[in-house]
Design a protein around this nucleic acid. Sequence first.
DNA 1: CGAGCCGTTGAGGGGATTCAAGCTCAGTGG
DNA 2: CCACTGAGCTTGAATCCCCTCAACGGCTCG
Lengths: 248, 248
Amino acid sequence: MSAIPIYRQEDRHPQAQACAACEVRSSALFGVLDAEGLDRIHTFIASAQLRPDDRVYDRGSPGSAVYTIRAGVVRFERTTERGDRRIVRLAGRGDLIGQEALLQRPYADEAVACTSVQLCRIPRVLIDELATGQASLPRELMLRWQIALDAAESWMADLSAGPARRRLLRLLQRLSAYADASGAIWLPRRDEIGAMLDMTLETASRLISAFRRERVLELNGARSAMLDTAALQHALRAEDGVSSSSGH
Amino acid sequence: MSAIPIYRQEDRHPQAQACAACEVRSSALFGVLDAEGLDRIHTFIASAQLRPDDRVYDRGSPGSAVYTIRAGVVRFERTTERGDRRIVRLAGRGDLIGQEALLQRPYADEAVACTSVQLCRIPRVLIDELATGQASLPRELMLRWQIALDAAESWMADLSAGPARRRLLRLLQRLSAYADASGAIWLPRRDEIGAMLDMTLETASRLISAFRRERVLELNGARSAMLDTAALQHALRAEDGVSSSSGH
DNA sequence: CGAGCCGTTGAGGGGATTCAAGCTCAGTGG
DNA sequence: CCACTGAGCTTGAATCCCCTCAACGGCTCG
């Protein structure tokens, strides 16, 4: 960027340049920092590239860093007492994850890459240090927490209630928010859909097949699909409109 | 408390004395403040008594205060696009609610008293003011956020999956954490159980009846019951043990 | 090329919903 | 005093959605 003084260009750590050029910076945690601030922290931040099913961190492990998602989709899993796993939430581009590390607490969930994922690892000590100087940082952190809380609650409200068909339609609607440049969405494996929506993989498969017949969805390789958003909205309205108003 | 200087006793605002004597103070937000700190803030804090079904705040209304729950149970509700309400989480003694107000955001949920509830209303501006002086306050706030996030995710993980019987057993287990001095738990109305666990009120009623026959539960007036925790644990183990290990 | 993973589809059964009737209990007013 | 009412709870019967069990096909990979 032309605003950066030339004499510092050569001094700057490659990662500092990467941070300055980062396309999610304005919406991410360190959006509040200026170029000088970035210079101070660059050596501690590491960017990483994950492949599908790579773990970001495990539930219960001592948290020493938070992560900003630059690209891709990450899921949060828990294992119930009965031993089956549940996916409780998704996170995507611009989201901050693993914030419990800032409180020196173990991670609350297992975080796993759904798609290929790019993220930045930010050590806890770095945030601690910055928080004393940068007054706006705590507020920024609280905002991230509220975003996560809101996501968890809204996931609960409209992905865990009603008939299987409606839950899956709602999930597709959410996945469309994570669509890539070509408009293709990440389509979970059938058993992953089951873990998200509390249904069996067979039910998920039958529904996906139905949506294909209804032209709501068009498969595009194994884990990718194109959505017909108009047809999706139509199907959702049909779900919400017809049946009785109490319960489901 | 004998540690409080006598000459200040008469000066102290009644609310300041109430705060100093508050039995949840050590676990609540202002546990980090000393007597002097309490003196400064007392005039802004108002305690309130709510009756069942009284609303603390509405979703969407501009948040100007957070609340600490001193006694009772509060539920968070959302209304789905289809028009039916869902209860996404509970909060109880010692919990901080409505934190989104600190970010000058509208409340994310409707908060409603389940039992009779005692709480303290803390204006946003008061927290803003204290945050500049009291360095430990932001950390304390973040901790509350993480507690809320964890509650929402664990609610999702074990109250929204599996057969109706198991979900209701799990709910009873959670409600036992909010039992009063006599050991009695708050028992929701049948349609409220439905809104929490995504089942019809008839199913909830049938299950409650079954639990009474099995001596897991003994009704104790309309909204109150005694739990046999041993029988409850036994029933839960039976649920988790017998059936197949995949799905439910 | 057989093994294993993932997805699809079918048949049958069971658990939860739907529809319906009746019950208790508190509040109200004749 | 007691029928009247309505809200909440219970229970029954029938239906249906979804789960369970099962078989099969496509695909990758050793």
